[in-house]
Amino acid sequence: MDLILQLLFTGIGIGAVYALVALGFVLIFRATNVVNFAQGEFSMVAAYLMVVFAVDLGWPYWLSFLIALAGMALLGVIFNLGVYYPLRHRTYLPVIIATIGASILLANSVLAIYGPQPQVLQGWFETPGIQLGPVYLDSQYLLIIGVTILLVFFNFWFFEKTLLGKKLQATSQDKEMASLLGISVSTMIMITFIYSAVLGGLAGILVAPVLFVSIQMGSTIALKAFAATIIGGFGDVAGAIIGGLALGVIETFGAAYISVPYKDGFAFLVLVAFLIFRPQGIFGERVAEKA
């Protein structure tokens, strides 16, 4: 039982990271109908910004955090204007290719500026974790889980209870109709990119003390997060969260009880199974039903 609880905690912790990045995927997909393959790089860039401000410049952690998130918001604006906006009237394919290009550009820019060395970023708390009976709770994973839960509520409130959230929803559902109702579609898409970049950045900053800060950290997480969005149902916010958590738990238990070397294999096995038997994911609707 102790073993199961420990694995469950770790699985949810790592799954929460996938969920945060997956959320970014989903929001952009809903708003633009394209997958942003640079979402993982948003996490990596934010983690490096934290290293610059909190480690190299020695600024207070909370201040560095706020500046890093502000930097991510700016990156969201630049990304929207530079990658999505010029191609907004084209089909989804050029936009997807542009996001892949942007992902390579971001990774190599950071490599050129900061070098290939992995960096250490301290967590929020002095205490690395707490022992709760037989289970060790890593303080950083606790924080990640807490932030994910908060974001679930925040997203619900934001998208269902605020005017801006409803405008964003309307834009994602039908751009033409939203435009006819006086909603500025381009502004809504801009806000979506900003929010997704901040979310991706938040995931990167939170996970950096656990996985270290490296150029590859974004792509490693993004691959799993992408799988999580498909499992949860592409385009569904709740699905991204559930998909991410499920993926984290499945791979952790799969590693513990079946095979450690094939840990990543379990995640993608589940992905393949969903693509075959339930391509719309857990919460997704069939295209026919949607219409």
């Binding site: 770790t10 790592i14 590693a255 513990a256 450690v260």
Partner: peptide
């Protein structure tokens, strides 16, 4: 274990 693992709890 496989290279580039993110978690070694198991």
């Amino acid at each position: 274990y496989a290279n580039q693992s993110q978690d070694f709890t198991p």
